[in-house]
Design a protein around this nucleic acid. Structure first.
Lengths: 148, 148
DNA sequence: GTAGTTGCAAAGTGTTTGCAGGCAG
DNA sequence: CTGCCTGCAAACACTTTGCAACTAC
């Protein structure tokens, strides 16, 4: 009984544990940022996270946001999604999956891994190891569209 | 005989035609940029193109490089490759294919379309149309690697 | 107490823009 | 001649960095 816990009751504690589990000291700011990200699977930009953190009382600086996101990503807690030339998205869903990227709205949507089957994997260039596969379906909202 | 031409003899003329074919006025700079890009299938950044153009005698400004690359991409002459958060690559190979991206060297390599078979295409989000599919294999050079 | 973290502001990058002068047709 | 291009420099947006003050443990 003492090893059981109802999740979502004290998220802070759990998040602290989660961070420690990957060797990250759980500071106020990091826990705050993690709470926002891990609340549900989602795609957020550094800016959005900064805004969320600061609207929740505690503050974090831009520098800390970027440091923390980079750290989380290196530790595998989140995934960087590079689809927009202008900014990076951070995805709190780390299970294998892919994305729709709406070029008009800038919106990012998940695609279940089993929806896209990749066969015939190519052989890697000499002396490299695979870090990850990104599959992005670029879509546009269907209004008639001028090309210029 | 008059409608035959040995390619690569007067590339400028051909490129002029190619540009006109997609409704682009072939100015000096645009032809110059197109020549570099179309010389062979390759992946170049705006910076690299600027350097190439300027080392070839004719000059083009940064603004013109960006304008031209954007224009070429919209007209389908080249393809923008978004893999590096820091800069866009322009790919003069417009046939369907995918990429290896070496995170250590920043190098981009082609993968033939038939090497990667995607089955089970997901259905698009309501009211959108597919613009393109990007598949990127992120790899690292195989030296032991510290994570921090 | 001490290593590690944070915040601020300044610097850095790639890219975009405004506008005067220039070139293509 | 006229509208479209080009170049310059300034503006931009995102991200990174340097360094002093602060916090976790």
């Amino acid at each position: 009984m003492q090893s059981q816990k109802k999740s979502a009751i004290q998220p802070e504690r759990d998040i602290g544990k989660q961070l420690r589990a990957v060797g990250i000291t759980p500071t106020q700011q990091r826990v705050q940022i993690a709470e926002i990200l891990f609340a549900r699977p989602q795609h957020l930009s550094a800016d959005q996270i900064l805004a969320s953190v600061n609207s929740l009382g505690t503050t974090a600086s831009k520098a800390t946001i970027y440091n923390t996101l980079g750290l989380f990503a290196r530790r595998g807690l989140i995934r960087e999604v590079i689809v927009d030339p202008v900014k990076v998205f951070y995805d709190s869903n780390t299970s294998t999956h892919h994305h729709f990227f709406n070029l008009d709205s800038g919106e990012l949507t998940d695609i279940d891994a089993d929806k896209v089957v990749v066969t015939n994997l190519p052989e890697l260039p000499g002396d490299t190891q695979l870090e990850g596969i990104d599959i992005i379906f670029r879509v546009r909202s269907s209004h008639p569209h001028e090309e210029n």
